[in-house]
């Protein structure tokens, strides 16, 4: 038996009708008031890319039925006993995390650079190729530093606008050459769509970045336990 984990929830076993990956049955493994939903998987089968998105859909359905903490994709247990043994030392932290995300959904805010110009080539008359190289490298470094500073400024202004949710905001800057800011905010599920529209209006005010607001999703970024 191999179990592919999807989400942690409080016991007793929540009533859900959904199926697991590739329409296989879901299994509930429970210990000390906490349980984990997994797909009963055939260990001879390999994961395909589509299973990643199917995991997301299963987690969405589980979270819609009951407060859940999504498990990281790719988590497998060798058996029901293995799942329960993995849960046991963390049940107190998992309960705390479940309280933190109860009734809440995650929205993602991504700020993409509108222009990503290559650093200008600095004419260095009278200098050799080594000096030219160093000058270009210096210019590239300064451009990168300026970009980082602007990204931090953008993140700061977004976080200031999210005053109500500030303890429930997580962000990173310059995660890829295209992305200035990647931010996650946990918001009450019943207000998530309204909050999404508010965030879309907010990010549209920035001139040098394009804002994309995604979700609502299950609380992936807020499901970590220490």
């Amino acid at each position: 038996m191999t179990l592919v984990a999807h989400a942690v929830a409080r016991a007793p076993r929540p009533a859900v009708e959904t199926r697991g990956l590739r329409d296989r049955p879901l299994v509930w493994s429970e210990i000390d008031g906490i349980g984990v939903w997994s797909t009963d998987w055939d260990s001879a089968m390999t994961f395909e890319t589509a299973d990643l998105m199917e995991h997301h859909r299963v987690v969405e359905r589980l979270c819609a039925a009951e407060t859940c903490l999504p498990m990281r994709f790719g988590t497998v247990f060798a058996s029901d006993e293995g799942a329960r043994a993995a849960l046991l030392p963390r049940t107190a932290e998992l309960r705390e995390a479940l309280e933190r995300v109860a009734g809440k959904s995650e929205l993602a805010v991504t700020l993409l650079w509108k222009e990503h110009p290559a650093p200008a080539r600095t004419p260095a008359e009278g200098f050799g190729p080594g000096t030219q190289f160093m000058k270009e490298r210096g210019a590239a470094y300064r451009a990168q530093e300026a970009e980082r500073a602007r990204a931090a400024e953008l993140a700061g202004s977004l976080i200031a606008e999210l005053a109500a949710e500030q303890p429930l905001v997580w962000h990173e800057t310059c995660t890829t050459p295209h992305v200035a800011v990647s931010l996650a905010v946990l918001t009450p599920s019943e207000r998530a769509l309204e909050r999404k529209r508010e965030l879309e209006a907010l990010v549209s005010r920035f001139v040098d970045v394009a804002g994309v607001v995604s979700g609502p999703w299950p609380p992936y970024s807020f499901a970590r336990v220490r």
Partner: peptide
């Protein structure tokens, strides 16, 4: 923007979420 949205979701599926000691993380295909 569609790429950004997908990238954010995939990042969450692969890098966020509950991690428990003793689990195995495996590859896809």
């Amino acid at each position: 923007p569609a790429d950004a949205s997908l990238l954010e979701l995939v990042d969450r599926l692969l890098h966020k979420g509950v991690v428990l000691a003793g689990e195995a993380t495996i590859s896809v295909a």
